[in-house]
């Protein structure tokens, strides 16, 4: 498998506090990497280091062998897209305009009709096509998140005309989504993996993480404490130590308690790649 991104001995400290230390991580083509860990474990900082927003104090990040520091902003934008946790807009952009923002920078060379087509199919995939003409500010949090997802899909599509190797970062993408759209978003992420894109997502729901991840990366106090396929990583001991809850993996609740698992709807958790 092609390594799209490689981070070695990554460290980040600000005003004397170490937020990430000695982190080591790779994202391969077609791989969905899910980062889990308690609050304050350094997950978002790690993501911001990998996407180039923050400069690491130690260690190195390479995209397909090229050091991240040598890539200009537009070039990096062709290689990776980022879905932030929540975005507020101060001006009344429509959903269609928000999606098109993903194309106005790096997709400027594409003909107008092609750009419209890309934007429309992105809106369809993110299930916000019916909201295209609405002002972004008037949408619910979940709908806003889906509009942002459409923008990110547009950016990937535009970047693909320049770069074959792409990485998508999702920072708690499901936080404000209902169950249907949580599953929809992760299905869309897996569909992107099938086209060769590497995806890194921060998730809090361990069931969703286990159902969709090819690889789980567990963080605690700024360090990567475990990494590997979900079945190998998610153990009673790890859950107890990292999340500080005495839960055991694979145990059913008592018969009178109903439960729903996203895995029930999926065909096998393991990647085809």
């Amino acid at each position: 498998m092609t390594r799209l991104l490689e981070a070695r001995d990554l460290g980040f400290a600000i005003s004397g506090r170490t937020l990430v230390a000695e982190a080591r991580l790779t994202i391969a083509a077609g791989e969905l990497v899910v980062v889990i860990g308690p609050n304050g474990a350094g997950k978002s900082t790690l993501l911001r280091l990998l996407d180039g927003e923050l400069r690491p104090t130690t260690g190195s990040i390479t995209y397909g062998g090229t050091a991240i520091g040598t890539l200009p902003a537009w070039r990096l934008a062709c290689k990776r897209a980022v879905l932030p946790q929540a975005s507020r807009l101060s001006f009344p952009f429509t959903v269609f305009e928000v999606a098109r923002l993903g194309l106005d920078g790096i997709g400027r060379a594409l003909p107008g009709a092609r750009r419209d087509l890309i934007a429309w199919s992105a809106l369809e995939t993110a299930d916000v096509a019916h909201l295209a003409g609405r002002a972004y500010q008037t949408l619910s949090g979940g709908e806003q998140q889906r509009a942002q997802f459409a923008r990110v899909l547009c950016q990937l599509e535009a970047g693909r005309t320049v770069e074959a190797e792409q990485v998508l970062f999702l920072d708690e993408p499901t936080a404000s989504l209902d169950l249907k759209h949580q599953i929809g978003l992760l299905e869309a992420a897996r569909a992107l993996c099938d086209t060769g894109i590497g995806v890194l997502a921060i998730l809090h729901d361990l069931n969703i993480a286990a159902a969709y991840a090819h690889k789980l990366v567990v963080m605690r106090q700024g360090r990567v404490v475990a990494s590997g396929p979900p079945a190998a990583v998610l153990t009673d001991a790890l859950v107890r130590e990292v999340f500080e809850v005495p839960l055991s993996v694979g145990t059913l609740p008592p018969p009178e308690v109903p439960f729903l698992l996203p895995q029930a709807g999926r065909r096998g958790a393991q990647p085809a790649a």
Binding site: W74, A77, C78, R80, V82, G102, I106, R108
Partner: peptide, 21 residues
């Protein structure tokens, strides 16, 4: 105009989109 449109999303997001913020 292109840059300010991207900046509407936020500084980090404008950088993610490839703008020289």
């Amino acid at each position: 105009a292109r840059g300010l449109n991207a900046l509407v999303l936020g500084e980090a997001e404008a950088f993610h989109l490839g703008m020289p913020v």
